[in-house]
Computed example of a mutant assay.
Amino acid sequence: MDRQRLDKWLWHARVVKARTSAAALVEGGQVRVNGGRQKSPGHGIKVGDVITVALDHAIRVMKVEGFSERRGDATSARVLYTDLQHPPE
Rank of each mutant, 00 (worst) to 15 (best):
Gln85Asp: 14
Arg32Lys: 15
Glu89Ser: 15
Arg14Ala: 11
Val61Ala: 00
Asp49Tyr: 06
Lys63Tyr: 00
Phe67Cys: 07
Val16Pro: 01
Ser40Met: 11
Lys46Pro: 01
Glu27Met: 09
Pro41Asn: 01
Lys46Cys: 05
Arg78Gly: 09
Gly72Asn: 09
Val16Arg: 01
Trp11Thr: 02
Thr82Met: 05
Ala58Ile: 13
Gln85Asn: 14
Ala23Phe: 01
Ser21Asn: 09
Asp49Ser: 07
Arg70Glu: 07
Leu84Ala: 07
His12Pro: 06
Leu6Gly: 06
Lys63His: 04
Glu89Pro: 15
Gly35Lys: 06
His43Phe: 11
Ile59Phe: 07
His57Glu: 14
Gly35Trp: 02
Thr75Gly: 12
Asp49Val: 07
Pro87Gly: 11
Gly44Val: 03
Thr82Ser: 14
Trp11Gln: 02
Glu65Phe: 06
Val31Ile: 10
Thr52Gly: 00
Phe67Lys: 09
Ala22Glu: 04
Thr52Met: 06
Ala13Met: 00
Arg3Gly: 00
Trp9Glu: 02
Gly29Val: 05
Pro41Gly: 04
Glu27Asn: 11
Arg70Leu: 08
Val15Ser: 02
His43Met: 05
Leu84Thr: 05
Gly35Arg: 09
His43Ser: 04
Met62Ile: 11
Asp56Val: 12
Lys17Leu: 06
Val16Gln: 02
His86Phe: 13
Arg78Ser: 15
Val15Glu: 00
Glu69Gln: 15
Lys63Ile: 03
Ile45Thr: 01
Ala22Asp: 04
Arg14Asp: 12
Glu89Ala: 15
Pro41Leu: 02
Gly72Leu: 06
Pro88Ile: 12
His12Phe: 15
Thr82Gln: 12
Thr75Trp: 13
Ser68Gly: 14
Thr20Val: 13
Ala22Ile: 05
Arg71Asp: 13
Ile45Ser: 02
Val47Arg: 12
Ile59Val: 15
Arg78Val: 04
Val61Cys: 05
Val26Cys: 03
Phe67Gln: 09
Leu80Asp: 01
Gly44Glu: 10
Gly42Thr: 09
Val33Phe: 03
Asp56Met: 06
Arg71Lys: 14
Met1Gly: 15
Gly66Trp: 12
Lys46Arg: 15
Asp73Glu: 13
Gly72Val: 09
Glu65Met: 15
Thr75Asn: 14
Gly36Ser: 10
Arg3Pro: 00
Ala18Glu: 07
Val26Leu: 02
Ala77Gln: 08
Val53Trp: 00
Val47Gln: 11
Lys8Ile: 06
Val47Glu: 13
Val50Phe: 00
His57Val: 05
Arg60Asn: 03
Val33Trp: 03
Gly66Phe: 06
Gln4Gly: 03
His86Asp: 11
Arg3Lys: 14
Val31Ser: 01
Val61Met: 02
Ala24Tyr: 05
Met1Lys: 14
Ile45Arg: 03
Pro88Gly: 12
Arg70Tyr: 10
Gln38Pro: 01
Lys39Ser: 12
Trp11Cys: 00
Gly42Tyr: 08
Lys39Trp: 07
Val64Phe: 04
Arg19Phe: 02
Glu65Lys: 15
Val26Ser: 03
Phe67Asn: 08
Met1Ser: 15
Leu80His: 05
Arg78Tyr: 03
Ala22Cys: 11
Asp49Ile: 07
Arg37Ser: 05
Pro88Val: 13
Asp73Ile: 09
Arg5Glu: 04
Val50Gly: 01
Arg71Cys: 11
Thr20Cys: 03
Ala58Trp: 12
Gln4Leu: 12
Gly29Phe: 10
Pro87Val: 13
